[in-house]
């Protein structure tokens, strides 16, 4: 009889142990109510009473449970390797993989990362790296369009006598049209335009000025001088090369 009772105790222990383990596996740890730390019976009742509350909690907790925490630092690391990707793409894949290395490996292997399902379709920057790397170099140089510096800084009028054959009046029209249409380069303050046209390419060294307007005018003049000087030099160089080429 003694052996019989130990056997039943043993089997009971196994069954109870199995139930406990099963219960732990099915219910995540953070959802255990504070009072549910007694015997299996009391836990069972606690979990059954908590079910209604837990099911509502579960829907909220589903996101963080199935995805992993992603820090801003992780996103920045991936972005430094893959600047063509959007933050949403990186976050989405990091939530899936949970590791910077895995995400970067995937990016390198596939040449891009999938867009998150709820993201708005934008101008997709990711495929360009994949598609671009397989295309020939000749096509790349024309892939991005930037305005040249003369247009950007409205220097058409200042190209000078040996520059493009644009009449000053016409060029002014172009300049005013350009300034009204494009906002990024702010229109020059009148003082800057006047001073930069009076002095030549010299006067590189500037002095710090207390007034904000003066500083901006000086910076602008420095830039214009730099561009115009480079352009004149290149123009002369091209002119010199022409006869030999023809």
């Amino acid at each position: 009889m003694a052996t019989d009772s130990t056997t039943t105790t043993f089997i009971a222990c196994i069954i109870i142990g199995f139930l406990v383990v099963r219960w732990y596996v099915s219910a995540p740890q953070q959802q255990i109510p504070a009072g549910a730390t007694g015997t299996p019976q009391s836990r069972a009742t606690a979990s059954s009473t908590g079910v209604a509350g837990l099911s509502s909690l579960a829907s909220e907790l589903q996101r963080p449970r199935s995805r992993r925490p992603v820090t801003q630092g992780m996103i920045e690391v991936v972005q430094s390797v893959a600047p063509t990707l959007t933050v949403e793409q990186i976050r989405f894949d990091l939530e899936r993989s949970g590791s910077v290395e895995a995400t970067i490996d995937r990016f390198l292997a596939e040449g891009g990362l999938p867009m998150p399902p709820n993201a708005q379709p934008r101008a997709q920057p990711a495929p360009s790296s994949a598609a671009g790397s397989s295309s020939t170099p000749a096509t790349i140089s024309s892939s991005l369009a930037f305005p040249d510096l003369i247009t950007r800084y409205h220097l058409e009028t200042k190209i000078g006598a040996d520059g493009l054959p644009i009449e000053p009046k016409l060029a002014e029209d172009i300049t005013s049209a350009a300034t009204s249409s494009s906002s990024p380069p702010p229109p020059p303050p009148p003082s800057a335009a006047a001073s930069s046209s009076s002095t030549g390419a010299s006067g590189k060294k500037m002095k710090w000025s207390g007034s904000k307007e003066e500083r901006q005018a000086m910076l602008r003049k420095q830039r214009e001088d730099m561009i115009l000087k480079a352009r004149r030099k290149l123009e002369a160089q091209l002119e010199a090369e022409k006869p030999s080429a023809a």
Binding site: S141, F146, D148, L149, I150, T151, L164, I227, A230, R231, L234, E235, L238
Partner: peptide
């Protein structure tokens, strides 16, 4: 060099 020229508008 082609890019240099393009940037300077030549």
């Amino acid at each position: 060099k082609a890019n240099v020229r393009k940037t300077l508008g030549l």
